[in-house]
């Protein structure tokens, strides 16, 4: 991380991402929250670039900022009568406590841990490498099994989504006693 430009980029992007997250939390309107969420996703993609994870950064933009955000827009549009406000539930205080607790603990651990002990000398940045082809090799080599299982997962997620929302063909079935 020698380059001052990268250092600056880190701080700016980190501020954008965390700020976007906070806005998702406090925004009054659900659609506004969604916009800030996309902002956070984009900031995150930028952070990935600073970590030399170019492929992932692009995938992040495509999948998160693209697909998932669009899915959410659809979901919000498909539920027109639902409240649009981004209200908090009865669990706000426990939620805050849990979130702040986790943040605090992890940040504390991250700061106090002598990460250098992992190897024995101070942390140094690795040489940036092109990741795309290497990732491809890993996916089709060492991680071929999870790769295949992931495709099964995607397929059945599709089936599941269809099963859940498709219109009923017949009369209501009585699933379980109620």
């Amino acid at each position: 991380m020698e380059s001052p430009g990268v250092i600056l980029a880190f701080y700016v992007l980190a501020a954008v991402t965390v700020g976007g997250c906070l806005m998702v939390l406090v925004a009054r309107n659900l659609l506004h929250a969604l916009v800030f969420l996309v902002l956070a996703f984009l900031g995150m993609a930028g952070l990935f670039f600073t970590l030399s994870a170019d492929f992932i950064a692009v995938a992040q933009i495509l999948i998160y900022a693209g697909s998932i955000a669009v899915l959410m827009v659809f979901a919000i549009m498909l539920t027109p009568l639902a409240a649009r406000d981004n209200a908090n539930s009865l669990f706000l205080l426990p939620g805050l406590a849990a979130g702040l607790g986790i943040s605090g603990i992890v940040a504390f651990v991250a700061v106090v841990t002598p990460w250098g002990e992992l190897k024995g000398d101070a942390l140094a940045a690795a040489d940036p490498v092109t990741t795309v082809s290497a990732i491809g090799d890993l996916l089709l080599g060492r991680y071929v099994l999870p790769f295949e299982v992931a495709s099964i997962l995607l397929f059945f997620a599709l089936i599941g989504a269809i099963v859940l929302v498709h219109d009923r063909r017949g009369p209501r079935d009585s699933g379980g006693a109620s």
Binding site: V18, V24, L96, A98, I102
Partner: peptide, 14 residues
């Protein structure tokens, strides 16, 4: 850690 924490708050309290 900050993002995870904020995410947790959102997930638990919205």
């Amino acid at each position: 850690a900050l993002i995870f924490g904020i995410g947790t708050v959102i997930a638990l309290s919205k």
